[in-house]
Structure formats: C-alpha cells, structure tokens
Amino acid sequence: MSSPVEADIVLVGGGGAASLVLAELGREHLPGVRVAVVDPVLKRGQDRTWAFWGSPGSALDPLLSASWDDVDVVTPAGRRVLSLRPLRYAMLRSAPLYELAAKTDAVRITAAAGTVLDDGERVVVSDPDGTPLVRAAWALDSRPRPPRRAGRTNWLQHFRGWWLEADRPVFDPDRAVLMDFRTPQPARGVSFGYVLPVSDRFALVEYTEFSPARLTSPEYDRALRAYADLLRLNVSELRVREVEDGVIPMTDGPFESRPSPRVVRLGTAGGATRPSTGFTFSAMSRQAVQVARAVAAGRPPVPDPPYPGRHLWMDAVQLRALDRGLVDGVAFFDRLFERNPASLVLRFLDGTTSVGEDLRLMSSTPLLPMTRAAAGDAIARLRSR
C-alpha cells in the first residue's frame, strides 16, 4: 500500500469550484504550495456552461465564449431591453476553465473520496474503503451535499438547454435574452426561457423552472420545443449539437461552510448558491479569489461568507412568498427590473449591494404580500427553535 500524498491544500472534488481555485492559485505564482486534487473523474471538455454578470476586465475574460452589454427581459406584456453597464453578462464554457486548471502543478488523484478527517493539525482524505489518499494542512471540499438542516422552503432551479446550430444566420449575437416569461407557467413556481448566442448561427436555448420538483425528460423536451416555437425557430432545420441538464437547490436551509477547523466547503456545499435564484458562479468565483489571496498572504484559505445575512433573510422571505402563492413570480421579477436599474438588481443577486440599496429594492416589491411572507418566516423561525 503506497503512502498518502502530502500536500498543503487538498481539493476534494475537481469541478467548477476546484478549477477556479486552481486557476487563481496559478495566477498567484506560489511554487512552494503543494496542491492535490481528489476526484474520480478528470474534468475536461464541455460538460457545463456558466452565465454570470460582472465588470469587464476580469481574469476570466480570455476564457469567455461571449458577453453582452444589453440583455432582454420578456413578458407577455412586452420586451424590456436592459442596459447592464457598467456590468456585462458573460458566458463561460467549462472546457477552457478545465484546461487552465490542468496547467497547474497540482497532483491529481483519480479516485473517489470517502472520509475527510480533521485531527486539528492535518486533514486525511481517504477513499470509500478507508485507504488514505492525501494528508494536507487544509481541505477544500466542493462535493455536493444537502444543507445542515432542511429549509422551511425547498425549491429547485432545474433546466434543460439545447446548443442549436443553423446553416444560415438566425440569432442576433449582440443580444442575449436573460429571462423570457412567455413560457407556460407551472401551477406552483416560475418558468422562463433564455437565449445565449455565441454567433448568428450557434446559440444556447434553454428552458428553466424555479419550482419544488423536476420534470421528466420528455417534459423538458416538450417545453424546449414550445419555447423554440415562441422564438420562431424551426428546430427541424437546426442541429442540436449538445444538451445540458441541471438542477440546483433553492432553499433557506443553512449550508455548513466550515464543518471542522481545517475543512472548508466551497461552491453550493459552502453556501455559494443564491437561495432565491439558484445562481452560483459569481460567489464561487469570489471564493476562489479569496482563497488564493489568503494563501499568497500566508493566511488560512478560508473565504468570506458568500452572502450577507440580511440577503439570506430576504431570500427566505421571497422563497416563502413564491411558495405560498403570495406573489406572482413573473410579475415579481418584472417589477424588480421595471423599478430598479438592471445593474442594481444584478448586484443584489450577487450579494454585493449596500444596506441602503437593499432597502430600495425591498420598497419596490409588493409591500403587503412580502410583509405577510416576512411575518410567516419569523413565526416559522421561532417554531423551529
């Protein structure tokens, strides 16, 4: 039996969160820092797409497939064109990020991780049979896991997308559709489509729901075909080059970001998923930057909480209002964009707004229903204690 790999940091899980950390550590040029990655699959190729907003000029810019300064929000009442400046909406596909992460000097162990044991001085990562794989000073664990306790409201962001290719120009590469609410709305939840064009002949067309349960595979396909019809796309004349599926938790249940002194959780497992929307990438990227800067400064690789506590409370209230039918989901999101600058709404969803800006956003929501949701949330919190 071989001895476990010795490292300063072990990344448990090698997906998006770990790849972002590896990329940021590589930018810091830390040759003396030993890094190991434990994952049963060597991540490569296009297995997912991340769409996010932020300021131009970031370190990720060379990896982007496309970006847009303006996006559309569409409802049955009409189309609203939103200027995101000084932000922009961007698309990052997984392959260039995986390739960048692969260029680092990390030791990769292609095996499933079982236990992650912290003795207070070192962390030992073992396989499911108990064989030690890595001993490290710190473990950054991004494996999916449920919250520490069940939330009072538990929804999902779930979706299917088709990468469509045409032989002639059918897409506008300068315009992305952020949310198109003309899709049939579920009895309990919110649905929308969106379009992210890479060129005039290649785009990701996706159907998404915020609701308590996933659909069947045929139901996703029917919803996508119906949305393509809304866009006046003839799917029979297009090629479906790739299919992307996903499901992301939307819950007010708390995630355990620090299960022990030397184990830190990243990504959704570390609370990076925004409860009210399921958006994750921006917070995950911030975690990676903070980890790398801490390591470069000789500090523990522990990122800040992904979102302020008041934002998590606001998310819990919004989820409750949607779940109990106190607000109409389409009208709620449309009203937010109607009464606030798009950049303010997006910065709130990223968790970077000030208290004053949060109050402005709260005042633009339906007052009575949200007050009822806040009161119900307070009562539920008291009862759970």
Rank of each mutant, 00 (worst) to 15 (best):
A139S: 09
S142P: 03
R182V: 06
P128C: 04
R149A: 10
P132D: 10
S126I: 02
R160S: 03
V134W: 13
L133F: 11
P146K: 06
G151F: 12
M179V: 08
P144I: 07
P173R: 11
P184D: 13
V125D: 13
M179H: 08
W162K: 01
P184A: 14
P169S: 03
D167Q: 14
V177K: 06
Q157W: 12
A150S: 12
P186C: 00
A150N: 09
T153R: 11
A136G: 07
M179I: 09
D129A: 13
H158G: 00
D172V: 02
A176F: 07
R149E: 13
R188F: 00
A176Q: 06
S191W: 05
R149I: 04
G130V: 07
V134A: 06
L164D: 12
F159Q: 09
A166I: 08
V125C: 09
F171Q: 06
T153D: 07
A136K: 11
R152D: 15
D180L: 02
A150M: 01
S126W: 10
P169Q: 08
P169L: 01
R135Y: 07
F171G: 04
N154G: 02
R149D: 07
A166S: 15
R188C: 00
P132C: 05
S191Q: 09
W138R: 04
V170P: 00
T131E: 14
L133G: 10
A187K: 11
G161L: 08
R168I: 03
D180E: 07
T183V: 11
R152C: 00
R148W: 12
R145L: 06
W138E: 01
R135V: 14
P132Q: 10
L164W: 12
Q157P: 02
D180A: 06
W162L: 00
P144F: 06
L156G: 06
D167Y: 02
P169E: 08
A166P: 13
E165Y: 02
V190G: 04
Q185F: 03
R182H: 06
F159W: 15
V177T: 14
A176E: 11
R188S: 01
T131D: 15
F192G: 03
L133Q: 09
M179D: 11
F192P: 00
R143Y: 12
F181C: 02
H158R: 05
F181A: 04
P184T: 11
V134R: 11
A166C: 13
A187F: 03
E165Q: 15
R135G: 02
L178T: 00
